[in-house]
């Protein structure tokens, strides 16, 4: 699903954000990516989204070899994954429904499919009663659910989330991660979630990849606190 082989990445100004990273995330896995500020987490995601290309090494995502991907194949590749950002990236003058439908509209899907899929995914994210509201009328947690609904609308096999709970009150943060876990369990969607909320990682547990100074320094399963307390 995600396969990084000896990947290094350097920005134009010479900053080496990633150094010899080897990483494999299989279909159906749920993995947290943690690390201090400036460790290279966002840089890793940029490579996975093909915003940038690795300076050396191979990046393979959903069967696409991103080193060799031609520009005109990028749209097809991007349709095979869903992205969620810390800042939600919703369009303020569109309603919740339109924000979610947008991802289908701009990828040439039929009105019929839009009318069927959007209510379904809103229902799944518990947003049905918010469909006609605008992003600014929603809480951070609700906005992130809209953004998640948009990422899920095309049923991608992989969801990449960059600090999806960074702008959300802690009580709602857990709700978002629970939803991600639920999607992971129900649909078998691979999920890669960057966070620096260690408490949360400890609470949920599971595969945790720690990046520091551009290197993978830890990659293993940790036992969640939720399980311990039970």
């Amino acid at each position: 699903m995600i396969d990084l082989i000896d990947v290094s990445f350097q920005y134009g100004n010479g900053t080496e954000a990633l150094h010899n990273v080897n990483l494999r995330v299989n279909q159906g896995e749920f993995a947290f990516v943690v690390g201090s500020s400036g460790a290279g987490k966002s840089s890793l995601l940029k490579l996975l989204l093909r915003e940038t290309v690795a300076t050396s090494g191979q990046v393979i995502v959903n069967g696409f070899n991103l080193n060799k991907l031609k520009n005109r194949q990028i749209p097809k590749f991007r349709r095979s994954l869903g992205v969620v950002f810390q800042d939600f990236r919703l369009i303020p003058d569109m309603t919740v429904y339109e924000n979610v439908a947008f991802a289908m509209r701009v990828t040439d899907q039929s009105n019929k499919a839009i009318r069927k899929n959007v209510p379904e995914v809103l229902e799944m994210m518990n947003l049905s009663d918010k469909a006609k509201q605008h992003p600014y009328e929603l809480s951070g947690g609700e906005q992130q659910r809209v953004s998640l609904a948009r990422a899920l609308i095309n049923h991608p096999p992989l969801i990449i989330a960059d600090e999806p709970t960074g702008n959300i009150d802690p009580e709602f943060s857990y709700e978002i991660v629970e939803m991600l876990e639920q999607i992971n369990k129900q649909a078998g969607t691979t999920i890669l979630m960057v966070t620096h909320e260690h408490e949360m990682v400890k609470f949920f547990g599971g595969r945790t990849i720690n990046i520091e100074e551009g290197r993978v320094v830890f990659d293993d399963y940790i036992i969640g606190g939720a399980n311990e307390s039970e």
Partner: peptide, 12 residues
């Protein structure tokens, strides 16, 4: 930018 992330073509 959202269009780019969800895989809209440049034509679109």
């Amino acid at each position: 930018s959202i269009m780019k992330y969800v895989g809209a073509t440049n034509t679109f």
